[in-house]
Design a binder for these strands. Structure first.
Length: 320
RNA sequence: CCCGCCUUAGCUCAAUUGGCAGAGCGUCGGACUGUAGAUCCGAAUGUUGCUGGUUCAAGUCCGGCAGGCGGGACCA
């Protein structure tokens, strides 16, 4: 693949790359590794899927992909006992594979290396270099909601920074909520003798309730293995203001999952509402904004396509 | 280690001298919209942190334990 097209592929849909210049250099390397970490979660949803798809782009561009099942991080974030978390992580690996990552994807369970002596010393070293305020700030969008803040909360970002070093990361991928931790990494890894990774941030998907972020804890997600009925039901219940494209979860789903696979979306609607339409992404946004496309018609079309797109995922998970 | 205050619905908090455990938010359902939301109705929700006691009767009083917050003490 040409360098230019690799770059284009990697950057497609990214909200931010720190920095594009460094990426252009990294991408020339023969051996290059991209990493992302996930706290094991009971449900893998569309938000996760956006980053996994980006990882697939990176694989195509020649990156070796490492997925961290951050069991200790989940533990530090109060998600349950280590044993429960490990169990969920096996399910998560199946989900990630189902989404289409290649066979040579490396899955790493965090606790297998995060308790090693040299790792621990690096965490301490970073702990000494990082102010409390900075560590807390980096966790603002990640920490489980609670007013009783635990020390665990500030250990978490430090470990994440050290992870990048131990996983020999050239590129760290994450949603925008990861950016403050990533910046902490870029600032401090060089001080510890490790070249800072390029950071690539994907947009966050709004929750089906219209809130800032889709997250399993808030129950405002569509899971990648939701049944067609559940998908339809959740989309029907979703926040979707007439004429408003900005922050509209249904429009976002169309953008990220439908128009990435096909150029147009078929809107089926009764003749009395204008009959069927076939729209490109631009046309869809335009008609929606002008209120020429009704939210319900949009929802029906999105639910139909989303069900189709995730059929292979549901089937993979049934058989594996 | 000691002292004080706190712990009630998913969340924030009420509950008189001990007398049927409530509200707001959220959730769910209905109405209204050709979606959702907003709005208007309606409903559900509890081992009152755990435990022992006093009492006809304990969220409330007494003891113990746990967790949280604040202070004190210890620092040869």
């Amino acid at each position: 693949m040409e360098l230019e097209s690799k770059l284009e592929l990697v950057c497609r849909g990214a909200l931010e790359i720190v920095t594009p210049e460094e990426l252009a250099e990294k991408i020339k390397k023969d051996d290059k590794t991209a990493y992302i970490g996930f706290e094991p979660s009971g449900k893998i949803h569309l938000g996760h899927a956006i980053t996994i798809r980006k990882m697939m782009d990176l694989q195509e561009a020649g990156f070796k992909v490492k997925i961290l099942l951050a069991d200790l991080h989940a533990y530090l974030n109060g998600k349950g006992s280590l044993e429960e978390i490990k169990e969920v992580s096996d399910y998560n690996i199946r989900c990630f594979r189902a989404l289409g990552l290649s066979e040579d994807t490396v899955f790493v369970l965090g606790s297998t290396f995060q308790t090693k002596e040299d790792y621990t010393y690096k965490v301490y070293e970073l702990a000494l270099a990082t102010t409390l305020a900075r560590a807390k700030r980096s966790m603002a969008q990640i920490t489980r909601e609670s007013k009783d803040h635990k020390v665990a909360e500030v250990i978490y970002p430090l470990m994440q920074v050290v992870d990048m070093m131990f996983l020999e990361t050239d590129l760290a991928l994450g949603g925008m909520e990861q950016r403050k931790i990533h910046m902490l990494a870029r600032e401090n890894l060089p001080k510890m003798g490790y070249e800072a990774p390029v950071c690539l941030h994907t947009p966050l998907l709004h929750g089906t309730d219209g809130s800032e972020k889709m997250s399993s804890s808030k129950g405002n997600f569509i899971a990648i293995d939701d049944s067609p009925e559940a998908i339809k039901d959740k989309i029907k219940k979703s926040y979707c203001p007439m004429g408003r494209v900005e922050g509209n979860p249904i429009i976002e789903i169309a953008e990220h999952f439908i128009f990435t696979e096909s150029d147009t979306l078929l809107i089926e609607r009764p003749d009395k509402f204008g009959g069927n339409l076939e729209l490109t992404q631009e046309q869809l946004k335009d008609s929606y904004e002008k209120e020429k496309l009704h939210p319900l018609d949009l929802k029906n079309a999105v639910a139909r396509e989303l069900t189709k797109i995730f059929k292979v995922v549901r089937e993979y998970l049934k058989d594996n």
